[in-house]
Simulated scan of single mutants.
Amino acid sequence: MRERLAIEGDLAQRTEFCGMIGRGPGMQELFDLIRRLAPHVRTALITGETGTGKELVARALHHEGPRRVRKFITINCSAVVETLFESELFGHVRGAFTGATENKVGMFEQAHGGTLFLDEVGELPALVQAKLLRTLEAGEVQRVGSLEQRRVDVRVIAATNSNLTQLVAEGTFREDLFYRLNVIPIPLPPLRDRREDIPILTQHFLERLGRDLVPPRPNVGVSQEAMRQLMAYAWPGNIRQLENVVERTLAFSQGRTQIDVADLPPEIQAAAEPGLAVRVAFPDDGIDFENYVHDVERELIRQALRRADGNKRRAADLLQLKRTTLLEKMKRLQP
């Protein structure tokens, strides 16, 4: 058990990049993309479901680029009161409005020379969208209540879990701003499309969260049956949900060195259908963890294809995968 945990920990280290973990082809391609873009990109749009790690990608672009020693400023656009948006982003001068008792430096000016991360950019009010577009195009900001234009040199990275194309069609998001932000699109895959990463992500969270416990428990593992359930679950909350589940299971495992199915939340216990996962007896001298995970994936794909009468698109739907992802996995998992 200790040797297996050590192997999994080493694997997590080799597949970690700027706080992100992934050994599958999708994440490795993302890591390569970040390395290529970071030295040059000035504007990027990161898209993905809630909990997929959009802020980590933004921080990686900042850290791997020439602005790494300058500030990284974050604003959550869904958490700012609409009437204060303009002041938060662009600043204001004293007397600009009731309560403006002193000058305020906006986030664009704070991020001068560095990076401004606009999280949930789809929530921006229409007026602020217009001013943001001008700032991106002219490199200038105008504080509320002032006529002075101030030069700013800022890399802008935006992120959203909304469909901006649909918001543009509905008229709630400016088309010109969308194209200005979408210079470099960076889509993030949901966890259900990268199930091969679930074991090392789980082990990573177990080790990190276990070290913070009193007393520390950094060497907790996961039983094969529990891992089958984790890999069969759809993870609507993605990596953030997985981290929360790991934290919960550590609490429910009550000092034991192994997480079992009974420690998992009910919805995850019920996720896998009986007989769907590969049945492998655990030998006395251990198991090849990576090959076992590959066997689980291969069996899931085989069962889905059988139910879909060989139709790959329908099999992909059954597995909640993109068809291209399924084809990629089938090629990689060929014996």
Rank of each mutant, 00 (worst) to 15 (best):
L5K: 11
E8C: 03
D10P: 05
T15L: 04
I21V: 13
R23N: 10
L33K: 09
R36W: 06
R36A: 12
A44Y: 11
L45E: 05
I46A: 13
R59N: 02
R59C: 11
A60S: 12
A60M: 05
H62K: 05
G65A: 08
T74L: 02
I75G: 04
C77W: 00
V80S: 14
L84Q: 10
L84A: 06
L84N: 14
G91P: 00
G95C: 13
G95H: 01
A100F: 10
A100C: 07
V105I: 09
G106A: 08
G106L: 10
M107H: 15
M107C: 04
F108L: 04
F108N: 03
Q110W: 04
L116R: 02
L118I: 06
E123Q: 07
E123I: 09
A126C: 05
K131W: 00
K131C: 00
L136K: 10
E137L: 09
G139L: 04
R143F: 00
R143C: 03
G145M: 12
E148N: 12
A159L: 12
L164H: 03
A169K: 15
F173S: 04
R174Q: 08
E175Q: 11
D176C: 15
L181P: 10
V183T: 15
P187D: 05
L188K: 06
P189E: 15
D193Q: 06
R194A: 01
R194S: 03
I200W: 00
F205Q: 02
R208L: 05
L209I: 07
G210N: 07
Q224M: 12
A226F: 06
M227A: 07
A232Y: 04
A232I: 06
N238R: 11
I239V: 15
E243P: 03
N244G: 10
N244Y: 09
N244D: 13
E247K: 09
F252R: 15
S253H: 09
Q254K: 13
G255K: 08
Q258I: 13
A271F: 13
V280A: 14
F282V: 15
D284R: 10
D285W: 02
G286H: 08
I287H: 06
E290Y: 03
H294M: 06
D295I: 01
R298M: 03
R298C: 01
E299S: 09
I301P: 00
R302L: 15
R306C: 07
L319F: 00
Q320Y: 02
L321N: 08
L321I: 01
R323K: 12
M330K: 14
K331S: 14
